[in-house]
Nucleic acid binder design. Structure first.
Lengths: 209, 209
DNA sequence: TAATGTGAAAACCTTCACAGCT
DNA sequence: AGCTGTGAAGGTTTTCACATTA
């Protein structure tokens, strides 16, 4: 059972449920109510139930949700029941930190290639990857079945790299560059931008006691 | 002129306007309409005008907005007309990438201290900072007038570090750890979590053509 | 003429409250 | 008795559309 049109905000919350449920599995909790889950995540039970109801009926009235069942279902809904192969473009300090970060693999994301436009970088080893030149992008994306590109290049290069990724049929882009590049419909772009977060944060800090 | 209660979504968008206007200044554009700005940012002109209207009247009918004036006003509204001093906690690969990232300083954020709980790290130099032990947190926060803490520690340590930051009177926390720690009201926490972004992304990728 | 600023309308999202199931 | 799933209510955010002004 899968719906017409789920609000984006709901899709953004599903990974939070996945994370909380994963913890609960580790704690060997077998059943959880929307109330208990809500307490963990600081949200209302009604919101959790409503969010889940977009996708089906996963609970048992009077009892709650089977942790392992709900987790499995949510992972399926999000497409986390398969492995997603990603490449990193840009192997500066940020790119290296990303490649070496151990948090992606357990969550169904495997980084299988690294690229850089700087010829000095080509051939270097990062993690257990050989850095390749941008000219190799298209072919490697195909060969290694890459569907996600992680952008860790300076702002000035971001748009051009996005264009090359799209051209190479990468559909998902996680963008760390401090710009919002344009991409055609059918491409999914998520932006990670700590400066924007800090700049909103100061609005609230300034207006505190 | 400053308002009662501005929606959070609006505050989250203001930095986007700041960024676009900064570009326009660099391009030596003097006047911009909500329509032109909307085209750059992929949003409707009405939304931009409504957002700005929470804070005052910055435009000229028939003409548009003075780029430099609007930029100055927005920076003031966000509190970006002063410098904010931050510390980084955790100097692993991510912490080091953050400290060396050149994108914070031009945007009014200066990283002036680094901490790590690992005694091996204490005394090491990162960027031009000496890594300090956690025991020094409270005193250094006071001495260096630090109001923002940037968390780059493993999930397991995040809550404890947040508690220590709050205890040391740091009011803003930029959290890179893959958990959502609790903090008392009056603390402003922003989370940066690429795994959550990827996990929502796959929902859309999976449901593409 | 051209574009802002803004009430009002529309769309969207969250919360309520309860029927219904276990 | 306890908790889900869900229409309906309530609240928030976006968009519309136009009076107003440079």
């Amino acid at each position: 059972m899968e719906p017409f049109e789920v609000p984006d905000v709901v899709v953004l919350r599903l990974p939070l449920y996945v994370r909380a449920l994963t913890q609960l599995v580790a704690e060997e909790t077998e059943v959880v109510s929307s109330q208990q889950l809500g307490r963990r995540l600081q949200m209302t039970p009604a919101q959790i139930r409503k969010d889940l109801s977009y996708f089906g009926r996963f609970g048992k009235q009077g009892r709650g949700y089977s942790v392992s069942f709900l987790l499995k279902e949510l992972r399926r809904i999000l497409g986390l029941d398969r492995q997603w192969r990603a490449c990193v473009v840009g192997v500066g300090r940020l790119g290296r930190a990303i490649i070496n970060y151990p948090g992606f693999a357990p969550e169904a994301f495997k980084i299988v290639a690294a690229f850089d436009s700087n010829p000095q970088q080509i051939g270097n080893t990062v993690g257990d990857l050989q850095v390749q030149g941008m000219f190799a992008l298209s072919q490697t994306v195909q060969e290694r079945d890459i569907s996600i590109g992680i952008l860790a290049v300076p702002a000035a290069q971001a748009q051009s790299v996005v264009d090359q990724l799209v051209e190479s049929r990468v559909r998902g882009i996680l963008n760390y560059a401090p710009v919002a590049p344009q991409a055609p419909k059918g491409t999914v772009m998520m932006n990670i931008d700590p400066v924007l977060s800090l700049q909103s944060m100061t609005y609230y800090l300034k207006n505190l006691a």
